[in-house]
């Protein structure tokens, strides 16, 4: 029972992290109609920046904030130099160009930080287990990820739904040409949205860094997961991304934790130990395939164009 609670929390934490990544992706996708494969690279850069800055400053929080700023800046520069010329292009062109960026970032990281992974050690105050309900302890750091991600999600909701910028973002998502015609500086808006997306990806990366190793290519697997999420949730819908991310996070984590035992009950030992890892890795792709077949627009499609 305790194990189930713990795994549920792990799933929630993973899902929220995925949401941070998917939110930026779905914003850029929904508003600029831009497929950004390099989003995972920004996630990776966030983690590398954090590992470096935390090393320099000796403070986890300060280093994390600096890394956040650096990823934001990197995103804005990237948008300004290269990506803004790709808006309105074919999706395929965008896929190819950002695929090139992935190659570039992976090798740039290898050149600067070396091929070996980095570790980002946690400060002592984040490593203690916290008693959440009597008898169940949960690592403080994972709890912090949940809290921070929920705060960011709430903030994002407020910004998008309650501020003027948010109104412009939503307007941009439903009709780009029109808000340009109304005298809004759409280029600046796009740059801002892209920067925001980059910062969110960086935040996800730097928060995940202490749990996993910081390494080259870390952004690629998780990028695919983020794409799965925005496709399940419905492209351009932040609410959909939120629901789908938590859904995917929990299913993936629970599948990995409990599927092997479940399979062992119905299959022979050898067959189960072969099938379980494949099935638990495939689970979310299976889910996406089913969702796309049943509801090709995703579960929570954004308002009709």
């Amino acid at each position: 029972m305790y194990l189930v609670v713990e795994q549920l929390l792990n799933g929630l934490q993973f899902g929220l992290l995925l949401f941070l990544l998917a939110a930026g992706l779905t914003l850029v996708f929904g508003i600029m109609d831009f497929v950004n494969l390099a989003h995972g690279s920004l996630y990776m850069m966030g983690a590398y920046f954090a590992a470096t800055f935390v090393g320099w400053t000796g403070s986890f929080v300060l280093g994390a904030l600096m890394a956040l700023g650096a990823t934001l800046l990197l995103g804005i520069v990237l948008e300004f130099v290269a990506l803004r010329h790709l808006y309105g292009r074919d999706h395929l062109d965008q896929v190819l160009a950002t695929f090139g960026l992935i190659l570039f970032f992976n090798d740039a990281v290898r050149l600067i930080w070396g091929p070996a992974g980095l570790a980002l050690p946690l400060p002592a105050w984040l490593t203690v287990p916290v008693q959440i309900i009597p008898g169940v302890y949960y690592p403080a750091y994972r709890l912090m990820i949940i809290v921070v991600a929920l705060l960011v999600a709430a903030l994002l909701y407020l910004v998008v739904m309650r501020t003027r910028i948010g109104m412009l973002i939503r307007a941009g998502a439903s009709n780009r040409e029109m808000i340009g015609a109304l005298g809004i500086n759409i280029k600046l808006l796009f740059t801002l949205v892209f920067g925001l997306g980059a910062a969110l990806a960086g935040l996800a990366g730097l928060m995940q860094a202490p749990i996993l190793t910081v390494q080259i290519g870390m952004g690629e697997n998780i990028l695919i997961l983020a794409f799965v999420i925005i496709v399940i949730g419905g492209i351009g819908s932040i609410r959909g991304a939120f629901m789908a991310a938590i859904f995917v996070g929990i299913i993936d984590t629970m599948g990995r934790a409990f599927l092997p035992d479940l399979l062992r009950k119905v299959l022979s030992g050898a067959a189960a130990s072969t099938a379980a890892p494949a099935l638990s890795s495939m689970l979310i792709y299976l889910l996406m395939a089913i969702v796309l077949i049943v509801r090709p627009e995703g579960l929570f499609p954004a308002a009709k164009r």
Partner: peptide, 27 residues
């Protein structure tokens, strides 16, 4: 299955099937 979708959704669902094949082979 994939041809029920279009555009970016098609890109993603073909990717998903390839990833499934990848995980089956890994297992």
């Amino acid at each position: 299955l994939s041809l029920r979708t279009r555009g970016v959704y098609f890109i993603m669902i073909t990717l998903a099937f390839a990833q499934m094949a990848y995980y089956i082979a890994s297992a």
